[in-house]
């Protein structure tokens, strides 16, 4: 169970992963449980939504703000903002523990006095972060597939999988921001702030771009643009979008390797 830093990281994260998964399951269960009553009054709700200002609707309820179909319901209630936030928060947390956390805890100096190159440590920690975000995505997916089946909602498992894969990759990319800043500075607070700040900024950019024509062209700079925006479910998976998300993570991993390698460790 303690073969190397990769395995140890997974072990360290197991409990957190379980708690996150259970929380997601509880939330999804609640959401699906109330769906039948929502569906019954779908027309009234839809009328109410249609009366909301368009900008507000687009920004906060998803482009459709659609309650009439199961997919629309999940998009609006789960995927328009809560889904991405779960993965981003989890990714940033995992990335933070990977380098800066260990450095601020003061255990990194001893660890790197062992026959382990910094490069190897970064790669193992990145792999552990990716694996654990992936595990969260899988858990989320299983919960949703099960819940929608039980509630006889007509949502495809593959569609859910595609949407969650995008979120997983988004979480990995923003986690990689935290990893890079943590590797470059060894400071926890700074690396968390970087991941969260970039995430918030990109979210705003993408969301405001949907309602403002001046900002619209800059949406491509936001990673959220590549996760299906506010209606990820049913959009399918664009290979180009996946490539952008993966490419961002790869670039940030490379930066982490370079920056961490040349630095004096703090402790």
């Amino acid at each position: 169970m303690l073969r190397n830093p990769f395995i140890k990281s997974l072990r360290d994260q197991a409990r957190g992963l379980l708690i996150w998964s259970l929380s997601i399951a509880a939330y999804v269960a609640l959401l699906i449980a109330v769906y039948p009553s929502i569906a019954k009054s779908a027309d009234e709700l839809q009328g109410y939504m249609d009366n909301l200002p368009e900008a507000f609707r687009k920004a906060f309820l998803g482009a459709g703000g659609d309650f009439t179909s199961p997919a629309g319901y999940i998009n609006t209630e789960l995927f328009s903002w809560l889904g991405p936030i779960v993965f981003i928060a989890y990714g940033i947390g995992a990335a933070n523990r990977a380098l800066a956390g260990e450095e601020e805890d003061g255990t990194l100096g001893l660890l790197l006095a062992y026959p382990l190159t910094r490069r190897r440590l970064v790669l193992q920690r990145f792999a552990a972060m990716a694996a654990s975000i992936g595990a969260l995505g899988t858990a989320f997916w299983l919960v949703l597939v099960l819940a929608t089946r039980l509630a006889s909602m007509d949502v495809g498992a593959a569609d859910l999988g595609q949407a969650l894969l995008q979120f997983t990759l988004l979480g990995l990319a923003l986690g990689s921001v935290t990893l890079a800043v943590g590797g470059a500075t060894g400071r926890k607070a700074l690396s968390i702030a970087a991941g969260a700040g970039v995430g918030t900024g990109m979210y705003l950019l993408n969301t405001l771009g949907q309602v403002n024509d001046t900002i619209e062209p800059f949406r491509v700079l936001s990673l959220f643009y590549y996760t299906g925006g506010t209606t990820p479910l049913g959009q399918g998976l664009a290979a180009g979008h996946v490539a952008v998300l993966l490419g961002a993570s790869a670039a940030l991993l490379t930066a982490t390797l370079v920056l961490f390698e040349r630095r004096d460790l703090r402790a």
Partner: peptide, 22 residues
């Protein structure tokens, strides 16, 4: 190290096993 910090959640046994594996 002079300022020795170890993994609080591991036992002594597990710590030594981890280090031995490394």
């Amino acid at each position: 190290p002079g300022e020795l910090n170890l993994y609080g959640r591991l036992t002594g046994e597990e710590t030594l096993r981890y280090f031995a594996n490394l």
